[in-house]
Amino acid sequence: MRELVIIAIKEFRDGIRNRWFLGATAALVLFSLSLTFLGSAPAGTVGVDQLAVTIVSLASLSVFLLPLMALLLSYDALVGEVERGTMLLLLTYPLSRSDIIIGKFLGQTLGLGLATVLGFGSAALVLVYGGIESANWMAFGVLIGSSVVLGAAFVALGLAISAMPRQRSAAAALAFGVWLCLVIVYDMALLGALVADGGEGISAPVFDVLLTVNPADAFRMINLSGFEDVRVAAGLVISDLEGIGNGFAPVLSLGMWVVVPLILAVVLFRRKQL
């Protein structure tokens, strides 16, 4: 436990030291603020809640950006240290390989999570200064929380990727491939399949399951379907969401995407010989 905390603190401080944290926070603040300002333009006329619009924009941004940032942070964490030779020494110290992985996971998730909170928090601050009244602060809290978990899931995935190959370049390629598949190709393939068979082969329940098991879609379901005003802002109708998507399942799915890759990373890394 002690070792785990030492690794986590070092990993977090590394992020600050090499200015990754600064860059990530700046990027997220910039995006959040610009989306907030853009988002507030249509709100007055249509009568949609301004915060709800911001939530939809931020959720749509997070779903692409956070996985990419998380993978960029973590794909190098193990294979990079193996390649540079620092892992060899570390492993002769009295700590287990799972300490290293979980420590790194915690440190990197903390860094990314803090950057997310600061980024989205800046948007919230601007809205509060603008004096908006909204009943959707709860939804905003859910957005921040689920974004941190989404980041954590992809940090864990990145660590599993990092435990596999012998070269950093291979890990980088693999990380990009995973991002592309889970975040972009998956949805397009699903949409394509739906269009192709005209809704015959894929029934609504199957479709719900297919959406829920993907971390990015699970994240969207949590944020876009949970609150009435947000649904309106996102243009969703409640009857679209009557399956398992409208409950606890997406949260569970996202949680599994944190736990399973982390276990995989530990198993893979334990087998590795240096």
Partner: peptide, 22 residues
Amino acid sequence: HRGKNAHGFLGYLPENIAFYNS
């Protein structure tokens, strides 16, 4: 391998030592 007892009594200087450069 899984436990960590004897490690504490071992000191090691690898052939090509590398540290965290930053």
